[in-house]
Structures are given as C-alpha cells and as structure tokens.
Design a protein around this nucleic acid. Structure first.
Lengths: 338, 338
DNA sequence: ATGAAAGCGCTAACAT
DNA sequence: ATGTTAGCGCTTTCAT
C-alpha cells in the first residue's frame, strides 16, 4: 500500500468532514447524521478507499482477525471444519489466519506465537494437548481461545467438541454386543494427540468392563493415510489368530483397511467387522458401507466461530455443551464368524 | 493486547538501549553489536515480549502476511495445495490468511477486498476467471499476486499452474486411441470456473480433430461430490445408446461414477471406460484403479509460495513455467466393447 | 452531530 | 554501532 492509495484523510476532505467523522461514518457508528454518512460513503466509493487494517488495529486494539492452528489440512475432516469456520467468520467480517503444524508441538507453539504477534483477536486450537507455554502465552496476552474436537474433563478450557472417550466406548459396545471377543485397533499417532489417546482409552475401558483387553500387539499406530490403514489391516490379517473386529479410530484408516480386505479377499463383515470414526463422504459409498461414528465436522467449525464471536462481543458466555456424535450402522459390522 | 503486555520500550529500557536499537536487534539487523543484540534478546525473552504486528506493519509498510482466496476446502485438492502453501510460507515467517468463496464471484471479490484491507503483502488466487474489479484493486493497491491451477494464454497475469486444455486433450486422445467413439463427460459447474471450461474445451478439441463431438446431452455439469458424480453416471447408463467412455473433469466425479457402476453392475472397463483428473489418494485404491491425469497439487502450493516470496524480496522474477501433469493409467480404461 | 488532538507501538531516516 | 525524531493511518477521548 503506497502513497497513491487513498487514505481516510482523502475521503474526509472529499466529503467535507473531519477525519473523525469520516471514521465514524465508515464504521457505521450511530453518531453521524444519515446525510453525512452517505456523503462519506460516496466519497469512499468514488476514491476506491480501502481502510488500512494495520492502522485501524493499532488504534482500535482489535484486528478483526482470528487464528486457527490445526494439525493438517491433509485430512478431510479438518478441511471441512476449517471451511465452515472460515465461512462463519467471514459472515461476521472476520478474517481467518490459518496455520498447521503437522503434529509437531514445537511447530505448533511457534505458529501460535506468530499468530499472536499478528494480533489475532482470538485463537482456535485442536484438542487439549498443548505446550504449557502456549497456554501461558494465551493467558499473558489475554487472547480468547477455544479448544476443538475434544472436551476438557477438568473444565479448565472452553471447548467446542465431543467426548472422544465416551464415543469410542459406544463403538466398542456395539461390537461387544454383536458378540465379538477378539479385537484389534488401528489409530493415529497417540503422542501429542489427545483425541487418539481418548479413543483408544475408550475402547480399552469398554473391553475391560467385559473382561477383555487390547493386547500390546492389537493396537497399531499409523500416520493418517489410506495406505497406512491398509498396511495395519494386512498385518492383523496375517496373524494366526485373527481379530474378528477391527476398530479404527478414524475413517481414513478404516477405509484403507476396507480396501485391503478387498485386495486380500477377506470378506467384510462375514470374516471381520470394521468400524470407522468421523464419517467421511466416501464411507457411505463403499460396499459394504462403513459403519462409523459420525462427528459433526462442519458444526465444529461453525460452533467455534459462534462461541468466539460471542466472546468478542464481550458477552460472558457459558462453556459450550459437548456436541453430539452419531452411530451410523452400515454394512461393515456383523456378528463374528462361527 | 493490553496495557500489561510488554512493548518494545520495555525491552529497550531493560536492555539499556534505545528503542531503535532494540528494534534493530530484534529484526536481526546487522547494524548492532553482537553483544547488545544478545542483551536485547535476553530482555525480550525475559519479558516474554511479542512484537505488535499491526504497529510493525504500519511503520514498515509490510505485514508479513499473504492471503489466499480459494473456491473451497471441501475439495481435497485445494486442501492439499493450501496445506503446502501454508507450510512454505511459514518457513519464511509469513502467515497465511485464508478465505473461500464457494464458487461465488461476488463473495470472492468481497473476501479479496477484505484481505487487501488486512494489508496482505501478496495474494494467491485460483484460476483466471475473476471479476475485473478484483484485478483493478490488485493493481490499484499494488498487491503482488499469482493465479494458480491454470495458465494465462494472454500472459497478462503470473500463473503457477498447468495447461488444463492441453491436459484434457491428452486424456481424450488416450481414449480415442483405444478406439472409443461414443463419449460423455462429467464436470463441475463451468460458470466462473475456467479450469472446468478449459478441460471441457480440450475434450471437445480432441474429439473434433477426429471428426467427433460431444452432444448437448453428453456433458453433465454437477457440483463437486461423489454423489453427484454417481448421479451423472447413472443418467448416462440409463440411456439407450450408452457412451463407451466417460471422461470426468475431476477425480471426485470419477470416483462417484466408479461407485455408481459398481452399484449398477456395470463392469469397468469392459462395458465403459472412466477417466478422472487430479489423482486423489483413493483413486489408486479403487478396483479397478482409476485412470487419471495427475496434477501436482502440493507442488502448486509450494511453487506459488516460492514465486511470491521471491517477488517480495524485490527480485523481478520471470513468469514461471507451467507445471507438468502426468497421465496415470490404471484399470478403468480399455478398448470399447464389441 | 462534528472537530481537534493525542496517541496506538513500531520502524526508518537522519544524525553522530 | 547507537540514539533522536518523525511519522505510518487510523480511532477515540474530550470538547463544543
């Protein structure tokens, strides 16, 4: 933005008012007469005036900007969430700063710091697992924030999410009720990822309550990719004592497992049941369709925006209620063989 | 950011230097003695100082911020691209403003305007189809920009992309060479989407050069979803005179079509050949695997970042060369029946 | 309802 | 190599 660019003083001069009035007129302050508001608006229009956000932010101490730090966009579930978040924010004239950390906590701290430096009015994070230094910064700079995709049992942080553990318990129960006894699980990397750990814990809880447990070998952690899900599944199917139910902590792995079974000639659900988590569009198209726990991906983004927007209006809003997940039973689950 | 937050003057005082020196020390300017640089750094560290980006932007006329306006994140190809873009920018200490417009040109203009208002140092756009008012703004505010996912034949705009038309011609040629004569095509909504129109034009060109053409009925435009691709395919398969080759302008539609065939009991590629465009991870997993034109999604994001970063360094860089696409022949293509 | 004036926190000449 | 000084373009008291 250089010298040739019209600034507020130009607009003011053209409209024949002071800068202060022009400023008020443009921010729709009720303090200006409709007639002068119009004159200013016309002058701005005519000059092609665009406010200088940095100057405005410096003077007003608000940037009109919200940051989001997510693991990655290479997972459709986050992409969907972020898309909804951005759209909701845009409706309220807020812009979204997006940063991803690819599951590295140090990167996360660094990018979050940079967003704070950019004067974001608020920050969206994913999950509850974060460097204490990050929470300290948030506190120090008084940046409102919300954690998403999880709930905080200690209620120390505002969360827009759902109970990953309870949801996973529900998944396991469905399988247990079908009569399964030999379980295996495929999940993402648990380190620095509370969602994964909670889902695994939920499955363990459910099994334990029926006198079962997940052996050391029965849990495979993999990065998120269809291929990785397939590899894990092949590993399980290679064993002399195959599991009859493979619980996947996310749909990406489940879909990979599904394809692997097709390639292996393993019949789903007759020989093995598979469950996913998240519910992606494609999960419904597979044959048999993937049984999964649907999570409200877009709703998460929308709700996070809504919560933050309310807070930024100064409303001391209640800690939001957990969102609901939904068990979607399709064709990959059935009673175990025999 | 409020009164309690440490500012540069606090750092300066603590380090026993002037604000100017503190400023220089923190921006690694070579003008300060190593010893004082260290003192300042320590003071900043101790105080938990974080620069005020808006103030810095106002004074320096650079925001350290780049904007991207994309159609949507609900299409994995853009998500992948944006992810790579963001990561490349972060490495250079730039932050990414992300906005999507869901294929609405008015929304695009509006969000772009807002990004310019946020003082982005540069802007990334998708495609060549944009409101002239948008290009005018870019010009007026001297915002460097780059168009992605396409090339500009008139060479009026810098582009990081590939030749959609030539790529589509190549797709059609492969099918023609296999002996296909009855074609149909599924694509996204062409209005305001040059990538779609170019791909369709490419197919038409290729057919025409062999004395064929795509009838009015043989082209179905649909929003992007697996389901929509399936619907279009069902429509084609319902016809008395079925096409022997269905060219999809993107993998999402192709995958939907693939699943529809499975549901319909239509055998691919014996009864019908299908081709995609983009190459998504799942395309390789389908049985038969989807034959498609691979586009360098992550590379697009990286290259866009690289180009803009160079320009922002003041280097007058050449208009970048088109990127290469790659024909990936898998199992959904074969000679037509009979 | 409008104007005058004082910054917001930082950088960048310009000095030295 | 460091300090002094003048803004960057806007908002916001405080007057009137």
């Amino acid at each position: 933005m250089d010298r040739t660019t019209p600034k507020l003083s130009d607009v003011a001069r053209m409209a024949g008012v002071s800068e202060a009035t022009a400023s008020r007129a443009l921010s729709d302050s009720q303090l200006v007469r409709e007639k002068t508001r119009l004159r200013v608006a016309q002058a701005a229009e005519l000059l092609g005036y665009v406010a200088h956000g940095a100057a405005r932010a410096l003077a007003s101490r608000r940037s009109g900007t919200i940051g989001a730090v997510i693991p990655t966009l290479n997972n459709a579930i986050f992409a969907t969430s972020v898309n909804a978040l951005q759209q909701s924010l845009a409706q309220a004239s807020y812009s979204l700063f997006l940063a991803s950390h690819e599951y590295d906590p140090k990167t996360e701290l660094e990018v979050a710091r940079r967003l704070i430096e950019r004067s974001v009015d608020a920050l969206v994070l994913v999950g509850t697992d974060h460097d204490p230094a990050l929470f300290a910064m948030l506190e120090k700079f008084r940046v409102p924030y919300v954690l998403t995709w999880a709930i905080d049992r200690q209620r120390r942080h505002p969360c827009i999410g759902f109970d990953n553990r309870a949801s996973a318990i529900e998944v396991a129960r469905h399988l247990l009720d079908l009569g399964h006894r030999r379980f295996a699980m495929i999940c993402g990397i648990g380190a620095h990822n509370d969602r994964v750990r909670e889902r695994v814990a939920g499955v363990r809880d459910a099994l334990r309550s029926r006198g079962l447990q997940l052996g050391e070998q029965d849990l495979i952690e993999k990065p998120y990719s269809f291929a990785a899900g397939g590899e894990a599944m092949r590993e399980f199917m290679r064993r002399p004592q195959r599991p009859t139910a493979v619980i996947c902590a996310n749909d990406v792995h489940a879909i990979g497992a599904h394809f692997a079974c097709a390639a292996l000639g393993v019949e789903i659900p007759r020989e093995v049941s598979i469950t996913g988590f998240d519910d992606m569009e494609i999960s419904a198209l597979l044959r048999p369709g993937l049984t999964t726990m649907r999570v409200p991906k877009a709703e998460l983004g929308r709700a996070a925006a809504e919560y933050l927007l309310e807070r930024l209006k100064g409303h001391e809003i209640d800690a939001p209620e957990p969102l609901q997940v939904e068990w979607v039973e399709r064709g990959t689950t059935a009673a175990p063989p025999d």
